[in-house]
């Protein structure tokens, strides 16, 4: 009986907070569809003006921004995933001197905020003529991603039944073969989750992109949006449409893979 009341209370809390989570997002969708010449107010719907997206896309040069974002995100995710699998494999299933210290270094990297390294990164990469290139965005982000990915994959490889590895070894399989043919097919969920997380972080990255790149043709989507809003502070519907364009790729990915995403987040955080 109390349990019934408590169940209701549970639904109420979940419902209310889900609504809070959703409302601003729905609001920005509605705003994006508003009549651009009408009285703009956030969250009200006064028509379905899909042409706002076209206007924002063209005025804001978003085609180019999205292209940059895709180039950077895909490169970072690809290399970070590859390197993380290799390093996680070594930390998880091999014994070698200094592995503890090295692993701690990677853990330390997880706590270093971009703000702490942005200053030297900028000045040193500038001296190497690497600012204003995709490299300036890709390399540092592979590095921060690898810190997380290595930890993540090590955790996964630690859960692999030892018998599997032993059996492979007895069959005379090399470590390389064991990794790619025996272990990795089983690791697909862990790898998928990791790539989703890395993709999201890379896509949404702001500070690095603000500092490293000033060339319009290399600019990534979040930065493009920030400057677009600076020029259009009073065009609510355009700003909203541009926001939707920038957020959409990650949101779509999330909707398709949310189970992996959440399971991964929980597993990574709780199971350890």
């Amino acid at each position: 009986m109390t349990s019934r009341a408590e169940q209701t209370l549970g639904y109420v809390i979940l419902g209310v907070f889900s609504l809070i989570a959703l409302l601003p997002i729905v609001g920005i969708l509605f705003t994006a569809l508003q009549d651009p010449d009408g009285v703009a107010a956030f969250g009200s719907l006064n028509g379905l003006h899909f042409e706002n997206f076209k206007t924002a896309w063209e005025d804001g040069n978003f085609g180019s921004y999205l292209k940059s974002s895709i180039i950077v995100s895909v490169s970072v995710v690809f290399f970070a995933t590859l390197f993380s699998i290799l390093a996680g494999y070594a930390f998880g299933l091999m014994r070698f001197r200094g592995s503890t210290v090295l692993f701690y270094l990677f853990l330390l990297g997880l706590m270093v905020p971009t703000e702490a390294i942005i200053v030297p990164l900028y000045y040193d990469l500038r001296d190497l003529n690497l600012t204003n290139t995709y490299w300036a965005l890709i390399l540092p982000q592979i590095a921060t991603s690898v810190a997380f990915g290595t930890y993540w994959m090590r955790t996964y490889f630690r859960t692999v039944p030892r018998s599997l590895v032993e059996a492979a070894r007895l069959d005379g399989a090399s470590t390389w073969f064991t990794l790619w043919r025996v272990l990795l097919p089983l690791a697909r969920p862990a790898v998928l989750t990791m790539t989703v997380l890395l993709f999201m972080w890379t896509w949404n990255e702001f500070l690095l992109a603000l500092v490293m790149v000033s060339d319009e043709s290399l600019r990534t989507a979040p930065l493009g949006l920030s400057f677009f809003q600076g020029r259009n502070t009073s065009e609510l519907s355009l700003m909203a449409a541009a926001s939707v364009i920038v957020a959409l790729p990650v949101v779509i990915l999330y909707i398709f893979l949310q189970r992996h995403f959440i399971r991964g987040m929980l597993a990574g955080a709780v199971k350890g």
């Binding site: 090295l102 990297g109 390294i117 390399l139 290595t150 470590t175």
Partner: peptide, 27 residues
């Protein structure tokens, strides 16, 4: 970790560590 000591571990670690050291630790 399971298994015997393996020096090859350093090789697997190398790419990740190089990027990480170059773009996080060194900065």
């Amino acid at each position: 970790p399971p298994g015997e000591p393996r020096l090859v571990g350093y090789l697997y670690l190398l790419p990740a560590f190089v990027v990480f050291a170059g773009f996080v630790l060194y900065p």
